[in-house]
Simulated assay, not measured.
Amino acid sequence: MPETRALARILPPPERYPYPPWWPYPPDVYRLALLAFESGGEVASIQARAIRADLPAKDKTRNPRGFSYAGTLFANGRGQEFLRAVRGAETLAALEAVVVTEGLTDTLKLAQVACRYGRRWAVLGMVAGSANAFRSLSAWPTGIPCWVATDGDEAGDRYAIQVREALPAGVTVERVDFASRQEVTR
């Protein structure tokens, strides 16, 4: 699944790789890693996910010491192309939609679904503070809708509104839960 490979990597076990000092977390716990991108498609940080289920929620994810992923976006291969194209750095291939997800695992899941079913979706995952990255996407291509597929809770509702408010006025934005759709209003 090339779309997923462009998005995530399984980190090697600590006995097979000498982890650098800026990665102070147990590499046997934080093994799934995603790159975090700035709105122009440049790599800004990395986020690692714990592979153990027994950790408290606050310990599920980590980023390198001294770095943050706030204000960045996770992006599958088409998402990376979209970010670079909006900034004029490359030509945009045909897309069905830009799909905004909430968090690392939902981004991975939707990127896999898009790949498995041959959907041409630019999947962009957001975390707290990521809505600011959408503000700089003012050259949004005509005719490309934005589907917001965040959780159906209060935090997901806030993310959906933040995305709508951050995007240019002419962009069609829909809240999608893939079971029913509802328009996101300002």
Rank of each mutant, 00 (worst) to 15 (best):
A122S: 03
V123I: 04
V123R: 01
L124P: 01
M126D: 13
V127R: 11
V127Q: 13
A128I: 11
A128G: 14
G129D: 13
S130H: 02
S130Y: 00
A131H: 12
A131E: 15
N132Q: 15
F134D: 07
S136H: 13
L137H: 01
S138L: 12
A139T: 00
G143T: 02
G143F: 03
I144Q: 04
I144C: 05
C146W: 05
C146Q: 01
W147F: 13
W147T: 06
V148P: 06
A149V: 00
A149G: 05
A149E: 08
A149Q: 06
T150C: 14
D151M: 01
D151K: 05
G152D: 14
G152C: 06
D153C: 04
D153E: 04
E154S: 10
E154K: 07
A155H: 11
D157H: 13
R158D: 14
R158T: 09
Y159K: 03
Y159H: 12
A160C: 07
I161A: 15
I161T: 14
Q162T: 04
V163I: 11
V163G: 11
R164Y: 11
R164E: 13
R164L: 14
R164A: 15
L167S: 01
L167W: 10
G170Y: 05
G170F: 09
V173L: 04
E174A: 12
E174M: 13
R175Y: 08
R175N: 09
V176C: 15
V176Y: 12
V176D: 14
F178V: 03
S180P: 03
R181T: 09
R181M: 05
